[in-house]
Design a protein around this nucleic acid. Sequence first.
DNA 1: ACCGAATTTAAACGCCCGTTTCAAGCCTAC
DNA 2: GTAGGCTTGAAACGGGCGTTTAAATTCGGT
Lengths: 271, 271
Amino acid sequence: MSPNGAQRTGTFRAATASDLSTAPLTRRKAPARSQDSGATRPRDPGATRTRILDVAEALFMEHGFEAASLRSITATAAVNLAAVNYHFGSKEELFQSVLTRRLDPMNQARLELLTALEARTGRRPLSCERIMMALFIPALRLARDRERGGKDFLRLLGRAYADPAPFIRRFLSEQYAAMIARFKAAFARALPELPKKELSWRLHFIMGALSYTLAATDALKLIAELSPRESANDELLLRRLAPFLLAGLKAPLPDLSQVERELERGSWVPG
Amino acid sequence: MSPNGAQRTGTFRAATASDLSTAPLTRRKAPARSQDSGATRPRDPGATRTRILDVAEALFMEHGFEAASLRSITATAAVNLAAVNYHFGSKEELFQSVLTRRLDPMNQARLELLTALEARTGRRPLSCERIMMALFIPALRLARDRERGGKDFLRLLGRAYADPAPFIRRFLSEQYAAMIARFKAAFARALPELPKKELSWRLHFIMGALSYTLAATDALKLIAELSPRESANDELLLRRLAPFLLAGLKAPLPDLSQVERELERGSWVPG
DNA sequence: ACCGAATTTAAACGCCCGTTTCAAGCCTAC
DNA sequence: GTAGGCTTGAAACGGGCGTTTAAATTCGGT
């Protein structure tokens, strides 16, 4: 009845989170697969799923998760309204599928890049520059995606970063955990004198700045005098962001105490 | 009939943007004011407005602009559903009022702080550290707001930063323009050797990192191993963010060409 | 040719949306 | 004490929401 394993057991109940653990990824490309030898396949396998994912990516980016409606998604994708619930189970699961489709390969590429770089330098620690490149280049590839999907996705990711909905926060944490841990270890080797806690904070700042910056709308001209040509060029953007973040990462430990004390005497503070 | 100037002219029409230009700020605290001598005032002036603003701040933060409904806002605030349209004109204008209420004073405080600092140093340029403090301290004051409203507001601001809705982008640009221009000039004096364009980018990164970081949910543990006690302390956070961003701001001009070229030879690139 | 599983379809379920209307309340000024 | 504003109230406007149901339809394997 549905490609989801245990949905609709006969009694009248809604799909619960229980069927989320049963192979959410095997549903990705071949939903048409029963328990027999995987032979049956429709004429255009996954066409409906893919159309839904593409449109959902754009509309979730534009309106956010809650405000993008399944009706607008299915209408734009020219599929039946029930197709989302049939193929993905629910709106939340569709959202997770949209994120997973690109986030998973991107973080995988980051790890592979880092591994490849480490293999080349042998036992010596990698430079921060190279580690940062392993973080940035897969994101840059997505930003360059000529079919425009990549750009939409990065903006959607930026929105998701700022969304407090519990299921989104949980999902992102799980998606990033392994990748972040690997990069933190790599940076820790490159910066042995930096306290671990400080490194955690700086990695937090780096990921935030990266996702925010890639997500920033072209029309965000808070900082004026950036021509559209410039602000639309993601490669140029990353080439400027990377040195900025590298300098922050390698900054000496804070010593703002003097200025801070001076400011907090506060005699001159207006208001 | 309504505190809005030109709403409801007798013919059946909806409120348009035309009445937005007519004193949107004078409506803030004293909506009860006709064209005669401003004497009439209700028993508890602005109580309904304030309750709506407080609740809207929290619900816009939690669900975003589109997904937070006027029905949930007015129900939570224990006011009539029509009160929003009466006092603010529309949902969009309510959203702008929510932002303006705190953004306006915060940016004003930033400017006053910068002016005060500049007055003390005379003709010599201000240090980047002090300029940055003028940017951070008013935000920190909001983050410390004991009534919790400030924290909600900063998170809402972080969401708004990532929202592509045109009216939000337009509004933020206008709200920030003057403040940013002043700070850009101050930084330019402190860093005369830095090209203006590079400075624009770095200011963009700084504002993005600041808003993103202050907006980050407590539950955002992408970077693990930060105890709740630590990640909830905004002052500690800013004390770590400021040196990070200062180092980026003062970084030498990019010279990643070598690493970049090396990476782009790409023989080792997986995938 | 037909079976049976996978997929698509149309309709309905109960509920929520932003806005407008107009009558009722409140409060001050006369 | 009553006229005339500002403010609140309850109801209705047309429309959209996520999800479920059960009946088509499609299509490879026999």
